[in-house]
Design a protein around this nucleic acid. Structure first.
Length: 517
RNA sequence: UCCGGCGUAGCUCAAUGGUAGAGCGGGUGGCUGUUAACCACUAGGUCGUAGGUUCGAGCCCUACCGCCGGAGCCA
């Protein structure tokens, strides 16, 4: 065995490893005119009579490798390899704008590690069902690996934020004995004959740990058995939750806004290229700076009912009617393009565009039909109801940064949230709503720290107290004001990447109707 | 759970109730610089399943199954 410069293990059988220097594609600029060996996967291939162009992917980038017929053996191997074959390519690096990364390899030798046949994912369009069923291969696409790199940074920066502020990571259990909230949304597990559940939050355990360590957080998967089939829901998703002793609601709001600012700005700084490749307009992300606008629930209700919002919504309705008109114009243009297109595959693409545009037009028409009802609902919104998706979207639309909404009605929130002593109808909670329609990314609260108030609240909910005796102990032995919140990683990644579907933000999404692969 | 949309070749999609199609991908051949290369030839089908209407069903009707996304619920 031998090790290359970066200490990466190379199989001893790779003869190129000892002939020329190993390089990764992102590093080629340091090897111009020098011989190198690349290893990777054949992303695509084009061939002329006496030349083959291979696109090689190695996880750090994509590079074009050119093989000419005069290198008979290499040419034969290159000609025979199918998409996604694994291989070594050795040759000279040269600068060439026609290669994706700006450098290409004039390949003198091509050696297959494993020759791949009939790779299922072509470089053409596929439907989501097919791609989701081939998720294990779909990850190889530039788009999907770009999203996963961004996810990695979001997680690293979220953890770094707390690590730098003196928080201690606490791993909370995945298997939990009882239901914290509505048991209908929990996955039951057979635990040696006893029914237990997959955790949907680490919060109660964190409350315990924060009385030991002061500032703590957990990061792990959570499970929700909700029968939600929307682009915003997963049954298994990752949440990062801080919990802080002596923190009160204003402290939580400040922490939440600097937390979100840090994640967005550091991800932006590290991934401009990946975000551009995803087609993300980064201008709205650049504006994500603390402080965020803050509203109480009551103020949010007032805003929903206000003349200001009403006029804005009517204006947007008119704008969208105009948009519908321009889409119909686009549709006619596409139909004209279709009749003029010569190549069959161009016609196919235009047909697909027409298909999609018709879909969008149908959706917009339906939306426009419902809009007057939504506008009326906003105007007549009654204090005491929880906000639905429509209301959240309307509230976010008033601002260009995330909005912090606090002090919701007690009835729509969980038993452990502390009541506001100045207005017993509401609790000291906070939700952070992401802009651009991405909805709630953070939910949290100051916790009820008074034993008797907590018991009274549990009685009100008709909860059994025996399973929570340990939780009540936290209020018996040195109770202090404290609180925390949880941030959903996938919704945050979807927002930063500007994705339509949350399922692309996690390597192997678990959805109501998908558990394979 | 409710509402809506879709199920045709490996993939993406066409096809007035009247002979099952194209492009891509695969295979073969051609072409020195391609950018989803191109050109020619070729193989490839239980039209989601089960009933029904009809002289005749991919198309119409009923039920079921699967997928998609919206409501509810939530991060």
């Amino acid at each position: 065995m031998c090790l290359d410069r970066r200490g990466v293990y190379l199989a001893a059988t790779t003869w190129e490893a000892v002939m020329t220097e190993q390089a990764c594609i992102s590093d080629l600029k340091h090897h111009v005119d020098a011989p190198v060996t690349l290893r990777g996967w054949l992303q695509g291939k084009r061939s002329g009579g006496k030349v083959v162009f291979m696109l090689l992917r190695d996880g750090t980038g994509v590079c074009q490798c050119v093989v000419e017929a005069k290198d008979a053996e290499a040419f034969e191997v290159a000609s025979s390899l199918g998409q996604e074959s694994s291989l070594y390519v050795s040759g000279t690096v040269r600068e060439d704008a026609r290669s994706p990364g700006g450098f290409e390899i004039a390949a003198g030798s091509v050696r297959a590690i494993q020759s791949s046949e009939d790779y299922p994912i072509s470089r053409k369009a596929h439907g989501t069902d097919f791609l989701m069923g081939h998720r294990h291969l779909w990850l190889r696409s530039e788009r999907q690996s770009g999203i996963l790199r961004i996810r990695h940074t979001v997680i690293r920066e979220a953890r770094r934020f707390f690590d730098n502020r003196g928080f201690t990571l606490i791993d909370t259990p995945i298997l939990s004995p009882g239901a914290a909230e509505g048991a209908g949304t929990l996955f039951p597990v057979d635990y040696f004959g006893e029914e237990v559940y997959l955790a949907q939050t680490g919060q109660l355990y964190l409350e315990s740990a924060c009385q030991a360590l002061g500032k703590v957080y957990c990061f792990g998967p959570t499970f929700r058995a909700e029968k939600s089939k929307t682009r915003r829901h997963l049954t298994e998703f990752w949440m990062i939750e801080p919990e802080i002793a002596f923190a009160e609601l204003p402290d939580l709001c400040e922490l939440a806004e600097s937390f979100v600012e840090h994640i967005v700005q550091s991800t932006l700084a590290a991934h401009e290229g990946d975000l551009k490749a995803l087609g993300r307009d980064i201008a709205p992300l650049e504006k994500i700076k603390a402080p965020f606008p803050r509203l109480t629930y009551s103020e949010a209700v007032e805003l929903l009912r206000s003349e200001e919002v009403h006029l804005r919504l009517l204006g947007e309705l008119e704008e969208d009617k105009g948009r519908l008109g321009s889409w119909i114009g686009q549709l006619q243009e596409l139909e004209k393009k279709l009749s003029e297109a010569k190549k069959e595959w161009q016609r196919e693409n235009i047909t697909r565009e027409i298909h999609d545009l018709r879909d969008e037009i149908r959706t917009l028409e339906e939306d426009l039909g419902n809009r007057p009802d939504h506008i009326r609902d906003a105007r007549e919104f009654e204090w005491g109801k929880d906000f639905g998706g429509d209301e959240e979207t309307i509230l976010c639309g008033q601002f260009d940064r995330p909005v912090i909404v606090t002090r919701y009605p007690r009835e729509v929130k969980a038993f452990y949230m502390k009541a506001d002593k100045d207005d017993r109808r509401v609790v000291l909670n906070l939700d952070v709503l992401a802009p651009e329609g991405y909805g709630e990314i953070i939910g949290g609260s100051q916790r009820e720290d008074d034993l008797h108030a907590l018991i009274a609240r549990m009685d009100e909910e008709g909860m059994e107290k025996a399973p929570y005796e340990w939780y009540l102990d936290l209020r018996r032995y040195g109770s202090v004001p404290h609180g925390g919140f949880g941030l959903g990683i996938e919704r945050t990644v979807a927002w930063i990447c500007g994705l339509k579907h949350i399922r692309e933000t996690i390597p192997f999404p678990r959805l109501m109707s998908r558990i394979y692969p």
